[in-house]
Nucleic acid binder design. Structure first.
Lengths: 108, 108
DNA sequence: AAATTATATCGTAATATTGCGATATATAAG
DNA sequence: CTTATATATCGCAATATTACGATATAATTT
């Protein structure tokens, strides 16, 4: 148990879920907000900013990268991170999809 | 360990993370997409639609409700569910925030 | 080549999530 | 009142996530 029947859902659904899953932790939201403000930064900047160890920040960065939400470029001994806008339209589209044009639902 | 230092993040960040966490499972994405299509439905409709037991669907519905993403109204022996649009602007705003106006970042 | 700096990964313990059968609850129908 | 219908919750096992210290990797500096 505790297993998700991945094969039961379509690719779009799985992609969306993995993106949202990556966004489902306050540290990763904070990292993205920091990145949005600073445009770019290195891992150490985030370690200074957040109450997390370097190892934990690095892990969160990897998750964001795997989900396609950030990009990283090696620059000397450090890695420069910035936001990857690739999947943002997907989120936008999903969000829009949830708005109901008519209001004759069952819930007041 | 495995504990998130909730007190270290601001309310907005925590709210966003909890919303995205609720969205971070394909079953819950599928439920919301189904709801968006049907406008409203009862738990049993989703049990028919998804490869999950009634208990599991009910659990996912509770999580979506707790996150403020759906509303439920008791109607006879069943509960009518529909999308709660309350937090959608928050998602939209966060998403917009991630777009960078200028492109002079470190990552090509 | 050795030391420094910056990030990633490993190993592990604590905690959280997921799924389902069984059961509880609550309204409606007979 | 009993039965049927619909949903919620409990209890548990399997799995996943999270955090951090320790360590590995990799480029730069001295």
């Amino acid at each position: 148990m505790g297993i998700t029947k991945v094969e039961s859902y379509n690719d779009q659904t799985l992609t969306l879920a993995s993106i949202f899953k990556a966004l489902g932790h306050p540290a990763r939201i904070a990292i993205l907000e920091f990145l949005a403000k600073e445009k770019k930064c290195i891992c150490g900047d985030i370690v200074t900013e957040l109450p997390l160890s370097q190892a934990s920040v690095s892990r969160h960065l990897q998750e964001l990268k795997t989900a396609g939400l950030i990009k990283g470029t090696i620059s000397g001994t450090s890695v420069c991170y910035c936001i990857n806008e690739q999947h943002l339209p997907l989120i936008e589209q999903f969000n829009k999809q949830l708005y109901s044009p008519n209001t004759n639902t069952c819930c007041p």
